[in-house]
Simulated assay, not measured.
Amino acid sequence: MPGRREDTPALPAILGLAGHAIRWQLLGELARSDRQVHELTASLGQPQNLVSYHLGRLRGARLVSARRSSADRRDTYYSLDLALCGELLAGAGGALHPALALAPPAMPAPPAGLPPIRVLFLCTGNSSRSQMAEALLRRMAGGAVQVFSAGSRPTAVNPDAVAAMAAHGIDLSAARAKHLDEFAGHRFDYVITLCDRVREICPEFPGDPQPVHWSIQDPAVLPDGRPAFRRTASELAERVTFLLHRILRPQHTA
């Protein structure tokens, strides 16, 4: 006599969202870089109203967030919450069968026999965001990545950024703000802008590096002081972790 049949679990929301072709393409684009709507419409070859509709669906599920550009308030950058995507996809597999629950992958080893990957972080002042990203990536990647940072109008490293990094076990007290001109003519595999303004004026670098944009607000302009720097450091640590999973794949593929 057959045993009691378990009820089939309801369809996880992430599968209904990601299972649509346009939304899947949007997730793929935003997994690589923060984007504006006109960039997404160009990449997908779809009309803006359709792209905006599907972005709205993803925002309603909290997978995608929007932030006004600090360079031009008429523009909006869209960002993907990769950590939440991972949680929901893991839960979707586990809902079907416990053996299908996804576990976070181990950090990949750097490709053998290839030179270190070179990454440049850019923001305006090179005082906090790019300095913190540089320090985090250097610690996480070890010798597999050569990492640098600079600014379009460098000032001085912010003491609150130093304090935020100290909470992550990183000493930033000796860091120096640098102008991006110091790296003119240098070759990089990735150039990552963290400031909307510097993205608009980012120079070209030889070797056709992969451009990536993280639209992160300058914590120095936020009213709550050091807590804003701690939040920024946590966001950067998460983004750098996901970045490493991408750039340490064999053959430096993006």
Rank of each mutant, 00 (worst) to 15 (best):
A90S: 02
R226C: 00
P47L: 03
V64G: 09
Y53D: 03
D171T: 03
A66M: 09
S70C: 11
Y77S: 14
L11T: 11
L80K: 08
S79H: 14
A144D: 10
L244G: 05
A135R: 11
M107L: 15
A13H: 04
T124F: 00
A10L: 08
L30P: 08
Q36D: 04
G207K: 04
A184C: 12
T253S: 13
A141P: 11
W214M: 05
D224A: 10
Y77A: 12
P2Y: 10
Q217S: 01
R4D: 07
A66H: 02
W24A: 02
S70D: 15
H20P: 00
A61Q: 06
D224H: 14
L114M: 05
A83W: 10
D7L: 14
Q131S: 08
I201R: 07
F183S: 06
A220T: 01
P115G: 05
V64E: 08
Q48C: 03
G45Y: 07
R4W: 13
V191G: 07
G16N: 00
L55V: 10
R153N: 04
G207A: 06
A92Q: 02
G143M: 15
T253H: 12
H186F: 08
S69Q: 09
M132F: 06
G19R: 01
P116N: 11
V212S: 05
P116S: 12
Y78H: 09
L15R: 15
R73D: 11
R246Q: 12
A13S: 00
W214T: 05
E87K: 12
G207S: 13
A66R: 07
V147K: 01
D224V: 08
E182F: 05
D75C: 01
T76E: 03
S127N: 05
M165D: 04
P219C: 07
A31G: 13
L248V: 11
L84V: 04
A10G: 11
R62N: 10
E235A: 13
A175D: 06
G151M: 13
D7K: 11
G113A: 02
L58H: 04
L244W: 10
E134C: 10
A150I: 05
E200I: 04
G207E: 08
R230P: 08
G94L: 02
V221Y: 03
D181P: 04
V191A: 06
R153P: 07
P12A: 09
I192Y: 01
A101T: 02
I192W: 01
G125A: 07
L180P: 00
H179C: 00
D75L: 11
P227V: 01
L180N: 14
R5M: 15
A106V: 11
E204A: 09
S215H: 03
R197G: 09
D160L: 12
P227C: 07
S33M: 00
P206M: 15
F148R: 08
